[in-house]
Design a protein around this nucleic acid. Structure first.
Length: 618
DNA sequence: GGTGTGATCATGCCTGCATT
DNA sequence: AATGCAGGCATGATCACACC
């Protein structure tokens, strides 16, 4: 009340004037009521409290209103101002400035001028501007400078937008373009610094883009909001989905902590299930508990309590640091809360990694020896541009593969890279010839020594035979990987593919595969004219190695599918429309048993009961 | 996240011009 | 000549941004 009373004569702002008038009327009404006086006669109605007079109306009205009011006070103020002159020059506010600068306001009581537009539309950061607080710097120069200032221009833009709503729409369109640019940068993983040049490019293409927000910080803000919006959409879809499956892909990082990418599969009313990235979680430890905690955090972040809400039906765990034991342990742990959980072999892009990791141990040290030798051979060329050039001329295939691999030191299993072994076999003679040449150069002692060691490896009968045999094994695993990468692969089919692979591997243990056969046919006393060493000494040893590799590989593949989930997963073959019988009669009874089995498995699941009830009621 | 740098703005002083 | 005013210029404060 005090403030308003104080401001009663202090402002010519239209908003203030209207409010002051209302206050005056209310005060009168209050006084009347206090004095217990009768209501005023209907000719002078007491206005009601502040109606919906919008700011917009006041703004549009304020110019004429202010000017009118000023006209009445102009003379008196002028007289008062002139009386105070004397001695050092005193600058005074000149009322004609109000006509010259429409945004200018002046309060004779406070003897301050300010900018009406800036006061209404300023941003937090510039609240200290003299033309917002109130200035006593009565110089036309000062006002002109303010009119040209960026702050004023920005506020003016906002003011005009408010006055003309149709411009807001245009601004929205322009901002949408800016959002597109920010989204593009984020989704392509491009630096935020590209924001401005990209926006400028669009401008050159005659697209209207706003001039503001073109710095990195604002781009980051836009990306942040885009991300938030997309996540909220996803969360909403997840909440609506009656069932969820989770895929966890662990990753070992030697520099930072281990982490796991959590993906979630959900169903909507139409179309197939969707798979989306949920979040990346740091692993406190690569243990069952570490993974469960990561799962808690991933779902906790979107307000889903997976243990209580009981909507999770499937789990796939993959990754370099995930052992068979860990995978099984995790399944056991989660099944304590969600007994219907299916643990399925999720898409396995690189089965050779897991197989090689699992089978390589002390008994099969030959694998690691081979790996080390291969890495040394590739490194020998990879990190010497000169040697690489020489290799390019003679052994183009191997050179290409080496380049493709990038940093050899970062490749987990060179053996697993099918094309590397293939390339080595293809360019075998050229590589051996080149190494021989390098080893014979006395001026490059270091390189010569390495080349000699590598020659020793390449001209070893057992090494070469092992490479041929591994090519057979890797080929089987590569076919499996290819099958896993198929777009519409059913779980039941994945199981079949694993079975097939196990079968093929067992055949390799008994009879030589395609590659080994080729080796045996080619090798007669020497190999393409290269005399191999340690001939036949290791034939028995090789056979034992071959057997072991096959056995272990079979075992690892067999463990891929969780035994508890197997029966349900096999029953899910019923969903493969291609396997349905043509005959209508037979179709009726087709897979009745399997459907019943799947139903019984999920029967205990609360959300299934709800889903079925909802279906019935509709 | 701290720091240096340039841009912007408010302010005061000075000067030149117009008016009294 | 005195006075008033606009505009130029210098200066310090503050802010945004780039860089480390």
């Amino acid at each position: 009340e005090g403030e308003v009373a104080h401001g009663q004569t202090a402002s010519y702002c239209a908003n203030c004037l209207v409010l002051q008038e209302k206050v005056r009327q209310l005060q009168e009404e209050l006084d009347r009521l206090k004095a217990n006086l009768p209501a005023p006669d209907p000719q002078t109605p007491v206005p009601t409290v502040m109606d919906d007079t919008s700011e917009q109306e006041m703004d549009s009205a304020d110019e004429s209103l202010t000017n009118e009011l000023l006209a009445s006070t102009d003379e008196t103020l002028k007289a008062a101002g002139a009386g105070g002159a004397g001695g050092r020059r005193i600058r005074r506010f000149k009322h004609e400035w109000l006509k010259k600068f429409w945004f200018l306001r002046y309060s004779p009581t406070l003897n301050e001028m300010w900018c009406h537009v800036c006061r209404q539309y300023t941003v937090q950061s510039s609240r200290t501007s003299a033309f917002i607080l109130g200035s006593k710097q009565f110089k036309i120069h000062t006002i002109k400078l303010h009119a040209q200032s960026n702050l004023h221009k920005k506020c003016l833009q906002l003011y005009k937008l408010r006055m003309h709503p149709e411009k807001t729409e245009e601004m929205c369109r322009n901002m949408t373009l800016l959002f597109h640019v920010a989204y593009h940068l984020a989704s392509e993983g491009r630096p935020l610094a590209d924001f401005r040049p990209l926006a400028e490019l669009l401008k050159k293409c005659d697209l209207k883009i706003v001039d503001q927000y073109l710095n990195e910080g604002d781009c980051q803000t836009l990306v942040h909001h885009i991300g938030r919006s997309l996540r909220e959409d996803l969360f909403e879809r997840l909440r609506l989905s009656p069932f969820l499956s989770v895929i966890m892909d662990g990753r070992t990082d030697e520099l930072l902590a281990d982490n796991v990418a959590v993906y979630v599969q959900y169903v909507t009313g139409e179309g197939p299930a969707h798979t989306e990235f949920l979040s990346l979680q740091e692993l406190s430890s690569v243990t069952v508990d570490g993974y469960v905690q990561a799962l808690d955090r991933a779902f906790g972040g979107i307000g889903i309590k997976w243990k209580e809400e009981k909507v999770m039906v499937g789990l796939g765990v993959n990754g370099a640091n995930v052992t068979t034991g860990l995978r099984a342990g995790l399944a056991v742990k989660i099944r304590k809360t969600l007994p219907w959980l299916l643990c399925v072999p999720c898409v396995l892009h690189r089965p050779h990694l897991e197989v090689l990791d699992a089978i390589s141990n002390k008994e099969l040290s030959c694998l690691e020896d081979l790996e080390n030798n291969l890495k040394q051979l590739l490194s020998f060329y990879r990190y010497s541009p000169k040697l690489m050039c020489e290799l390019r001329v003679t052994a183009a295939t191997l050179c290409e593969e080496t380049e493709f691999l990038g940093d050899i030191r970062a490749v987990r299993w060179v053996i697993g890279e099918q094309n590397v072994l293939n390339a080595l076999i293809k360019d075998y003679l050229e590589v051996v010839a080149h190494l021989k040449e390098v080893s014979g150069q006395p001026q490059k002692a270091e390189a010569a020594a390495v080349a000699l060691a590598l020659l020793h490896f390449l001209m070893d009968y057992q090494s070469v035979k092992l490479i041929y045999f591994l090519l057979d094994v890797i080929a089987v695993l590569a076919r499996l990987a290819f099958a896993f990468q198929g777009e519409a692969l059913l779980v039941a089919h994945a199981d079949d593919k694993v079975e097939e692979a196990i079968e093929e591997i067992s055949r390799l243990a008994e009879a030589p595969g395609e590659y080994l056969q080729e080796f045996e046919e080619t090798f007669q006393e020497n190999f393409h004219g290269v005399p191999l060493k340690n001939l036949r000494v290791a034939e028995a040893k090789f056979n034992s190695i071959r057997e072991k590799i096959c056995q272990r590989t079979q075992l690892i593949l067999a463990q891929r599918l969780d035994s508890n989930s197997r029966s349900v997963i096999r029953a899910s073959q019923v969903f493969d429309v291609a396997s349905w019988p043509q005959n209508e009669e037979r179709l009726r009874s087709h897979c009745e048993e399997e459907i019943l089995h799947i139903y019984k498995h999920f029967e205990i699941m609360p959300s299934l009961a709800i889903e079925l009830r909802d279906r019935k009621s509709t």
